[in-house]
Amino acid sequence: MELPRASLPVLPRRRVLRLLAAAPAAAALAACGSGDEEPDQLLALATAAKADAALANAIARAHSGIARPARELAAARTAHATALQREIDRVTPRDPDEPPSVPDPAPGKPPSSAGAAEDALRSAMRQGQEQSAKLVPSLPSHRAGLVASVSASCASLQEVLG
């Protein structure tokens, strides 16, 4: 008595061997990607943090009445830039001899009055908080935590400025 044959298609042996031989090449091509990589989403945040720190340091030098909160803000934003740069470098390692992917900002002039300087710092913190908060939902959880803490810190720094 003859058993019924399965109705599955049968691939010729040579075709199967060709497919197996091509698999490593296909995997290598898939790993390479398209080459149209977008810049890291954290670059803009790190650049803004460095710029805010530079502004705060310039204001601290120019306006002694608000130097202390300006220095605190500069220290916090420098820490933000450092943490963001570390995360950027973790995802996309760079040669240690190369400069950081987030350049130092060009030196700028602080506002001429202390009131305008305080307003500039508040505005910078509000922008930093909003920019960070907008980005959080689109990030993987480990990065979202970092960016959310930057956002919360910027919000608290606004309170320090009053």
Rank of each mutant, 00 (worst) to 15 (best):
A48H: 02
A124M: 06
T92K: 12
S132D: 10
H63I: 06
P107N: 09
S156Q: 11
T78G: 07
E38W: 05
C32N: 06
V136L: 13
Q158A: 10
K50P: 00
S7L: 13
A30V: 08
R14P: 14
H80L: 05
H80V: 04
P12Y: 02
E37K: 10
D97Q: 12
S112A: 15
K50I: 00
A124Y: 03
P69H: 07
P110M: 08
P105H: 11
S156L: 06
S34Q: 09
A116L: 07
P39V: 06
H142I: 02
V91F: 01
L135S: 07
S151W: 03
A75E: 13
G35V: 10
E118D: 09
C32G: 10
A124F: 05
R15D: 11
P99S: 05
A120G: 11
R15C: 07
A49F: 01
A62H: 03
T78H: 04
P100K: 03
S64N: 05
L42R: 13
L84G: 10
A62F: 01
K50V: 00
E159C: 04
G128T: 01
P103N: 04
A83E: 10
L17T: 12
P96V: 07
D119S: 12
L20I: 14
A53V: 02
A62E: 08
A81E: 05
A30T: 08
C32T: 11
A133C: 08
P24N: 09
M125Y: 02
L55A: 03
A28C: 07
H142A: 12
Q158V: 05
A114H: 09
D104A: 14
L42A: 04
L135P: 07
E87Y: 05
E118G: 11
L121P: 03
G115N: 11
S7Q: 13
P12K: 09
S149N: 07
H142F: 04
R126E: 14
L20C: 15
A22D: 15
L84I: 09
G162A: 11
A106R: 13
L3S: 10
S64E: 11
A148H: 09
A74T: 08
E87V: 10
A70D: 08
P110L: 08
A22F: 14
R13H: 13
R61C: 02
A54N: 01
A152F: 04
P4S: 10
S141G: 04
A75R: 09
E37P: 01
D104V: 03
S123P: 00
A30H: 12
I88M: 08
A6K: 08
A56N: 01
A114E: 15
V102I: 13
R126C: 02
A117L: 09
A148Y: 06
Q131R: 15
K109H: 12
L43E: 07
R122Q: 09
R61S: 10
R86P: 03
D89N: 15
A28H: 02
A56L: 01
A23V: 14
A106Q: 14
A46P: 00
E72P: 00
A144G: 11
A117D: 08
S132Y: 11
L29D: 11
I66P: 05
Q158P: 00
A76W: 01
V102N: 03
S141Y: 03
S7F: 07
P100M: 02
E2T: 10
A25I: 14
L20G: 15
R68H: 09
A62P: 00
C32H: 11
R90H: 12
S7A: 14
P100W: 01
C32W: 13
A76G: 02
A46D: 00
L43N: 01
S132C: 15
A81H: 06
D104Q: 10
